[in-house]
Simulated scan of single mutants.
Amino acid sequence: MLKLLDATTIRDLTSVSDLAAVIGEAFVPARDGSNGFVRSAVQTPGGQLLFMPAAHGATLSVKLVSLFDGAPAQGLPSVQGLAVVFDAHSGQPLALMDATTLTELRTAAVTTLATDLLARRDARTLAVIGAGVQGRSHLEGLAGIRPWDSVRLHSRDMDKARRLAEWARSAGIEIELHDSVASATEDADVICTVTSATAPLFPDAFRPRPGAHISAVGAYGPTRRELPSRLVADASLFVESTDAVLREAGDILIPIAEGLLPPRPPMTELSAVLSKEHPGRASAEELTLFESVGIPTEDALVCDLLYQRAVQTHAGQEIPF
């Protein structure tokens, strides 16, 4: 029998904060050189299909995700997909999962972990830019890592921002709506960008307050970015995978092309911070930047966790296979 886990079942089995507590395990293989899983893509005129194989625990998994900017105009998410889980010993197919929800929760969990590791302990002002699916999941995760005095939200679609603020308040997160990026991020201790922007959200001269932390999540691909080059060049860079960032992250690749960063700029992987090999934030005044791209081992960890919990709790639908 094959387990089928839809979005509702996945949300019943886990949450952003739950995953943030364990997602660090996904970076452990990177320390012994065994994390060689590479994301590949098939391009079409309208978008692309990503293929992400990896292993964790007793399972192998493959996540297939489509990225189509025009999908929302058809009433569909811009990110859609499936994950297939196999037994690591026999190769038997075990489960099909909604990869859209899996990706949403996993992405926010990694950002939550990175922000908790890198933001100042006395950070009290959080600004989230973007009110889509990732805006909600990131608010859910980030709300619990500091005793925030102010949580600010801005989106180019303020109707979506108002709806998200209503949800957040129902979840006990008090939100301040701002009508501009500049207003939302002024003197913010932590800035999290979760947009579909293709060009910088900030002017070239933008500088956050001393000691700020930025998590850049939304832009995917070597030609897209959320941050201006000079801001990136001035920050201490933290990543999931250096190699993945140098293949995929426009926030880093564009400043390299402009000569503001060297071809292989200094970047610290989260695994080094988690293992205490690197201290993370070096000073109270340092500007830290986490550039999120996502790596297959994160998805594999979540797939394994969801499958094991589904078996233990008899969750999900079973279909003959």
Rank of each mutant, 00 (worst) to 15 (best):
L76F: 15
V28G: 07
A272M: 10
A114K: 01
S241T: 11
A88M: 04
R31V: 02
L164I: 01
W167Q: 01
A41H: 13
P210S: 10
L105S: 00
H314C: 09
V110P: 04
V110W: 03
A119R: 05
E240H: 11
R31K: 06
L113N: 00
F37C: 09
A197F: 11
T297Q: 13
S78F: 08
I191E: 13
A108F: 07
D6Y: 01
L82Y: 11
H56I: 00
S292V: 06
I191G: 07
Q74I: 01
A30K: 08
L201H: 04
I10G: 12
T198C: 02
M158Y: 10
K63H: 05
L246I: 06
H314K: 11
P200G: 04
V133Y: 08
R225S: 04
F238E: 02
S229R: 00
R224H: 09
G135F: 07
R136T: 02
A123P: 10
R124W: 06
F206R: 03
I10Y: 15
T111C: 08
R281Q: 06
T268A: 01
E240K: 07
R225L: 03
R124D: 11
D179E: 15
A249H: 00
T125G: 10
D243A: 14
G70W: 11
L289W: 14
Q74W: 10
A88D: 10
R39E: 12
A171T: 04
S292Q: 03
A315W: 13
D157I: 05
E140R: 07
I252W: 02
L49V: 05
E104T: 08
R230C: 12
E166A: 14
G141S: 14
I10T: 14
T103N: 09
M52E: 09
L118W: 04
P210I: 08
T313N: 13
S61Q: 09
A71I: 02
V293E: 06
V293K: 03
S180P: 10
D243R: 09
A71H: 13
L113Q: 02
D159V: 07
V293N: 12
L13M: 05
P29T: 02
Q48S: 04
F68I: 03
A310E: 01
L260Q: 12
A109Y: 11
G47R: 02
D18P: 10
L261W: 14
S34R: 14
A182E: 11
V232T: 12
T115V: 07
L67P: 05
M267F: 14
P77F: 06
R163E: 15
R209Q: 02
A199N: 07
I175R: 06
P45K: 05
T100G: 09
L60V: 01
A300H: 15
L94N: 05
M1H: 15
A71M: 09
A108M: 04
S275T: 10
F206T: 00
A88H: 13
V302P: 15
L102M: 13
E186L: 11
T101Q: 08
I214D: 12
L261N: 13
P203R: 00
V84A: 12
